[in-house]
Design a protein around this nucleic acid. Structure first.
Lengths: 200, 200
DNA sequence: CGAAAATGTTACTGGTCGGTAACACCGTCG
DNA sequence: CGACGGTGTTACCGACCAGTAACATTTTCG
């Protein structure tokens, strides 16, 4: 009856709960999702949930950490596909983000959580903060490897464009400004790398 | 006791309620703010609230509409300050957004609501959508007036950068990528207007 | 003034929330 | 076999939620 996605392959209850929570948080929002609904969607129950997590907030933290780990794997794939080539990795990064923009899971858990976790002291906020800082470091290194003149500026430009594309999709739909994200981001990369070590 | 901001000048109860709601929505989130808290903050009570609004959702809609009207006034100021000069209006727009980025009220009510109103059919979503569409139309007209070659592309670039700056501030704080928003947006305007009908 | 409208007060409903207690079930391993 | 750890079930708690009813009070205005 429930729209599940992780019951068949008999994952451990803990993993089913986390994945069910992530999906529900995406669809209904964090505050709009009750622990009962999470336990149901995970084909488990509230008691098992609270045996693994002392509170809903702890579960939220785990969800964010897992999302961060998935992104880490994502970056590793890029490095494997274009080893040492910062420019190619940047381009591939932009392309894959653009591809996922329309998905139901568009990898915007961090962004959504950052907006929904209004409490400044929520434990999830430090997870978001650390992830974003690490992401920024990674991207700026790629920009340097790509040989662009002002690596920090291109880095922040891309980060703003990406976050903007994700949130603009929530506001204006897929036909809004985010539809041209790939085009815009590519142009940014080109303009920065073109003025430095110019390709072709 | 309560951190009010609109009780002294004895506004109408309806206006006090809307303004109190907007402030609480900003600080605690929409789902995290109860109607009792809104009525209290407005130095009013739940009954008067429900005499003016049939539901909390109606109040949310009114808050979004009022936020949109404030932005309209904002645009009118820009037109008055730089009549007919699209390029100057674009620049002033970017500058003022950058100035407000650090504020507690950074004019991101629409964006926050777009993320928090997870229900696709929530009446507030159409308000957001209409506002964003109108904003896009306005900006693209300004870009054309500014004489840039690809007005639509500069328009969407700026819109993505702005939304990105606002949400990046939630994720990474004021010292994150959004700190360089003005610099980045100015560079975008320059690169577009410089390559088309070049000034000077 | 006096009536009518708007506002305030209290108390209540039915539902949901996060979180817990007590107990039953079930597979694993000794 | 029996003990045990992980899991499921039911019921419950106090707090909060959106929304309403009945009544008292204040404000507005003819």
């Amino acid at each position: 009856m429930t729209t599940d996605s992780c019951k068949q392959p008999r994952l451990l209850p803990r993993d089913r709960i986390v994945e069910a929570a992530r999906e529900l948080f995406r669809r209904r929002g964090i505050r709009g999702t009750g622990v009962d609904a999470i336990a149901d969607a995970a084909s488990s129950n509230k008691m098992t949930l609270y045996r693994h997590f002392n509170s809903k907030d702890e579960l939220i933290v785990e969800c964010l950490q897992r999302a961060g780990m998935e992104m880490d794997g994502f970056w590793r794939e890029l490095e494997d596909a274009h080893p040492g080539d910062g420019l190619a990795q940047l381009r591939a990064w932009v392309r894959r983000i653009a591809e996922h923009l329309g998905d139901d899971n568009c990898h915007c858990e961090m962004m959504s959580a950052a907006v929904q976790l209004t409490d400044e002291d929520h434990p999830g906020r430090s997870v978001i903060r650390k992830f974003k800082d690490a992401q920024r470091d990674r991207v700026v290194v790629l920009c340097r490897k790509a040989g662009v003149a002002n690596a920090e500026l291109l880095c922040d430009t891309l980060l703003l464009l990406i976050e903007g594309a994700r949130v603009a999709q929530q506001s204006s739909g897929v036909q809004g400004p985010s539809a041209r994200f790939a085009e815009i981001a590519d142009a940014a990369i080109l303009s920065f790398s073109g003025s430095g070590a110019v390709p072709r």
